[in-house]
Structure formats: C-alpha cells, structure tokens
C-alpha cells in the first residue's frame, strides 16, 4: 500500500506541512534569540525583526530552495542518463560550474553576481555535455561504470580548478563553493536561488516529456518527440540549478543522489508524480541536517555540507545494499 501514499492529497498536504514546520523551527533556532515573543515585544523595527529579515528568513528560504532544487536536479540527471547513481556532483557538472566561477572571479572580478552565475552555467553545460559524450563513446555501459566515468571527469576538472585556485591563493574560496554552508546566507545573495526555482518549475512543466526521455531514445522517437531537444532541456535545468547552488550557498553533496532514490523506491519514476515529492523531501532533508549542524556544537556550527555528507553517505550505502539485494 505504501506506494499509494504519494497519490493521496492528504499525504501531499502532510508532507508540505511537515516541511513548513521544519522551516519554522529553522527560523527560530540560532545564536541570538529570535522567538515569537521577542518579535512581538520588539515590534517591526526591533532587533529580533531585523535579524529575522536580514539573516534568519534568507537562510531558511535558501535551505528550502537549494534543497528542493538540488534534489530535483539529481532526479533529472538520473532520468537523462538512465542511471540511479548519478547527480550533478558525479557527472562533472558541479566541478565545471566551480571552474567557471573561478575563471570569472579571476578574469572579471567586477562582474555582478548574476553575470558570474551565467558564466558558471555555461561551464556547467559544457562539463555535462562532455560527460554525455564520454558515455556515448563507452563500449559497455554498466550501472557502476557510468558514475565512475562521471567521478573521473569530475576529478579531472576538479584537479585543474584546484591547481589554479592554489596558485591564485583562492583555495578557501573554492572550498566554500564546493561545501554547502548556510551560516553566511544573507539578504542580497540568496535571491539568486529563485533562478534555480524557475529552472525546476520548467522541469515540472515538462515533466511528462522528461519521463519519456527517461525511457530512452527509441521510445522517445516512437512517441514523436525529439530526444536531443529533451536532453538539452534537461541538461540546461541541471546545469542551471547546480551552478546557482554553487554560486550562492555551495554544493550539497549526496542530496541529488539520495532523495530521488528514496522517492523512486516509494513512488516510482513518473516525474509528474515524483518531482513534488523530491522537492519536499529534499527541502525537509536539508532543513533537518542544517538544524543538526546548528545544535550539535552550539554555539558553533557544523557546515551543512559536512552533515549532509555524513547522513547522506549512510543513507546511500543503505540504498546501495538494498538495490543489490533486489537485483538478485
């Protein structure tokens, strides 16, 4: 019966409500006290209200947006490549975005953030296209080989990036791009994440087409659609989301891998049904991990990327073992 859960409106409402509750908790947890009480006492211009608007709300919104978008990007990547074990961080996409960001930071430091993001997206597109080309050249395409090729491509791009970052003394900056950290999220920077939101909304509109693309070139052609164009659309969404996340808050490892896998186990891969759930679970997962990171060593913070990495690795290992069990 479990797979029917996702179909009922009640379940959708419950999922969204739970995530909203998590978001509310997230807003009121932090070093300085922001509570509903202090908000009321201070009024609209009080310290608590200012803190809320300048830091807490942006942080929570950034978590929700980045979490949902990254998870959806993972889902789309898995559909396009037809492999469960890929996400932007294992296909060279994230690394390419970081390389692009490094290049533009060095060569045009004065460029506004949106411009830098555009350059990062361009690099991410090329990196992902390279990955798809490599896959096409692959004589055998086993389940494990595909993510391995992606990881290798990612490490090559990453090595180049690290080399230049090292020479230019930008290693620390590079680290912030590649490890999601929400402690520095402020008004004025996180808003770019709405671009990622727009990209995933486009994916939602094209959900049926993307599902068909996930059936492969032959099915897509038979149903009268242009496979190459669908591939381009999907890759654009993935590259945009990955780049925006790198530019604003830093990549969140594993997220795009685990969340779609969990949702697929329960609900299957029909994107029309899966995308809302992937978004909700992605946001909730990130909110929880962020809360863990904030309370574990209070008043210090553990970066989100680290928490997600640890929790995610455990979940992922479980999924991997489970899927190999199912295969036999």
């Amino acid at each position: 019966m479990i797979r029917r859960i996702g179909a009922t409106p009640a379940a959708v409402v419950a999922g969204v409500a739970l995530t909203a509750a998590l978001a509310l908790v997230s807003v009121f947890v932090g070093v300085a006290d922001v509570t509903p009480g202090s908000l009321l006492r201070g009024g609209p211009d009080g310290e608590a209200a200012l803190l809320l608007a300048a830091s807490r709300l942006p942080r929570t919104l950034a978590l929700v947006l980045a979490g949902a978008a990254s998870a959806i990007a993972g889902l789309i990547m898995q559909m396009l490549v037809r492999n469960r074990f890929v996400e932007p961080a294992t296909t060279g996409t994230t690394e390419a975005a970081a390389l692009g960001l490094l290049v533009v930071t060095v060569s045009a430091p004065g460029l506004p953030l949106a411009g830098k993001m555009a350059v990062a997206i361009g690099f991410a597109l090329v990196g992902t296209a390279l990955f798809l080309l490599l896959l096409r050249r692959l004589p055998v395409r086993t389940v494990i080989l595909v993510p391995l090729v992606g990881l290798m491509l990612g490490s090559v791009i990453g090595a180049v990036t690290t080399f230049f970052a090292y020479r230019l003394d930008l290693l620390q900056t590079l680290d912030t791009w590649l490890t999601g950290d929400f402690s520095g999220v402020l008004r004025g920077r996180y808003e770019l994440l709405w671009v990622a939101f727009a990209a995933t909304a486009a994916a939602w509109v094209a959900a049926d087409r993307l599902t068909v693309a996930g059936l492969g070139r032959d099915f897509t052609t038979n149903l009268g659609m242009h496979y190459g164009r669908l591939l381009a659309l999907g890759v654009t969404v993935v590259a945009t989301v990955a780049s925006v996340v790198v530019v604003t808050v830093g990549a969140i490892p594993f997220l795009g891998l685990i969340v779609p896998n969990i949702v697929s186990l329960l609900l299957g891969d029909n994107a029309r049904r899966a995308i809302p759930w992937v978004a909700v679970v992605g946001a909730a997962f990130v909110l929880v991990c962020d809360l863990i990171g904030r309370v574990l060593r209070h008043p210090y913070e553990i970066p989100l990327g680290v928490v997600v990495g640890v929790v995610g690795a455990a979940v992922f290992l479980y999924l991997l073992l489970r899927s190999s069990e199912r295969a036999h």
Partner: peptide, 24 residues
C-alpha cells in the same frame, strides 16, 4: 514501432507506461 529488446531502468507502473502511449 516496438523494438525487439527493451531495457527500461525507469520505475514506471504498467498503467503509467501504457498511458504514455497516448502521448502523441
């Protein structure tokens, strides 16, 4: 057209798959 061997990795229900036949 239906090919000789069809390998799908997507987890779709039978009903969903058949419904996609209506896409055109």
């Amino acid at each position: 057209v239906l090919r000789q061997d069809n390998h799908l990795t997507a987890r779709l229900t039978v009903r969903d798959l058949v419904a996609f036949g209506r896409f055109p």
